[in-house]
């Protein structure tokens, strides 16, 4: 279960990198930056639920 998260984020990173490179080649600079920002946001949102779960276990474990 854990490795899928790592592989997903890595694949999103590589995908956005390739797409932004292609867009740069095609001369569309601004779309390339937008694509990389969107990719980053998607990766962070995917990590959001595991971070929320971590925070939840922290609270129950150490009774914050």
């Amino acid at each position: 279960m854990e490795i899928t998260l790592i592989v997903k984020i890595a694949s999103i990173g590589i995908l956005t990198a390739v797409i932004s490179m292609l867009l740069k080649r095609a001369g569309k600079e601004e779309i390339a930056t937008v694509v990389s920002v969107v990719g980053l946001v998607i990766a962070l949102v995917m990590m959001l639920d595991s971070i929320a779960q971590l925070y939840e276990t922290f609270k129950t474990l150490f009774n914050f």
Partner: peptide, 25 residues
């Protein structure tokens, strides 16, 4: 990934440490 796109390296390292921490709890 650090060479290709450095933002994702940081996001990935945070994700990995979160996952490992969850497994320890």
């Amino acid at each position: 990934i650090k060479q290709i796109k450095s933002e994702f390296a940081i996001a990935l390292s945070v994700g990995v440490s979160v996952v490992l921490m969850l497994m320890l709890f």
